[in-house]
């Protein structure tokens, strides 16, 4: 049952866990995955957004948010210890 059969299973195993998301326009998000769908639309709770614009790094603490999937580049579960970027 708990096998990684398809790429989206990474998200399946990350429900209620911390994940890291890289998005277009140099935006990175960290937060708890609450739910997702096939378009990679997601609801993230206790999100923290880091954006790099013109060499300046800005951090924003956000509440819960629905995130539209079309801006996503990569997703990684934080559980296995991805180093902070």
């Amino acid at each position: 049952m708990d096998t990684l059969d398809e790429p989206l299973d990474v998200l399946k195993f990350s429900i209620a866990q911390q994940i890291y998301i890289k998005m277009r326009n140099n935006i990175e998000l960290k937060g708890t995955l609450v739910s997702y769908d096939n378009h990679l639309n997601m609801i993230i709770s206790k999100a923290e957004e880091t954006s790099f614009q013109e060499g300046i790094k800005t951090k924003r603490k956000l509440d819960a948010l629905y995130l539209r999937g079309d801006g996503i580049i990569l997703i990684s579960p934080l559980k296995k210890g991805i180093t902070s970027l």
Partner: peptide
Amino acid sequence: RGSTVKYVHIPQEELQEEVLISACK
């Protein structure tokens, strides 16, 4: 238009996190 949306900020207390997690599973 949906395609122009990046985020929808939802107040944390209105999220119903547990309900969503079990519904998603």
